[in-house]
Amino acid sequence: MHLHLADRYRVGTSPVHRLDPRVKILLVLTYILGLTLAAPGAWASYAAFLAVILTAAGLSGLGFAYALRRSYVAVPFVLAAAALPFTVRGPTLSALPVLGWPVSELGLVLFLSIGLRTWLAVQAAILLTATTAFPDLLWGLGALKVPPALVAVVGLMYRYLFLAGDEALRMMRARQARAAALPGARPPPVVWQARVAGRMIGSLFLRAIERSERVYGAMLARGYDGRTRSLIHFQMSARDWAALAAGVLLAAGCLGLQGAT
């Protein structure tokens, strides 16, 4: 009974799975940075970046299409850039059939470039979460000098996410169960609906505050003193360093292909 909050991690033993989480985080950031630095219209670069991510997906044992299939999350926001082909001034390519809006080549290139980059970046992020268990990911962030208090809070949030999600789901189901509608009756007004939803949220808030007090007590009972401590889980191996170096070089190489369009 989970509210869409499925664990993104896919258990596996591929070379990608076994990489140090710090390396994976850095590789993904390097990849996305490389993408961000690639100029619009650098199709050769983009093709190279695509090849890299597909190879990584293949190496991870999840299949080439794994990240591809899940990358549709990027779509809605890309629409924000959809105005570009029509607003950027420049030589026109053609005009839209019905509306007659002129489509500028530059704007189209810009739009497609942004879309491609977002799409590729999302795939990289998907691969990261699919090959790295969240606790390990958190540990990796902490080891990369993200402040320990922040890491601790995220860890706790993750742990209680599913519980909170279940509570919310149960409340919504209870609401549904009482939402009988007689034939011919008008549905209740929006303001009333908002009030019901808001009250549910208020209840959840209360329960969360009370739970946080209990969790605090449980932490105290096991010796919590306000400071964050954790065990060392991973050591960098030669393979980890090699992967990191390879990744950086690849990103630089893909970028270098910019002039080749």
């Binding site: 208090a149 601790a152 809070v153 995220v154 860890g155 706790l156 949030m157 993750y158 742990r159 209680y160 996410l161 519980l163 909170a164 959840l204 808030f205 329960r207 969360a208 505050i209 739970r211 946080s212 969790v215 605090y216 932490m219 306000g226 964050t228």
Partner: peptide, 11 residues
């Protein structure tokens, strides 16, 4: 701080 912020973020 940690338990409160964590649990409330989940909320």
């Amino acid at each position: 701080m940690v338990p409160m912020m964590g649990v409330l973020a989940a909320f």
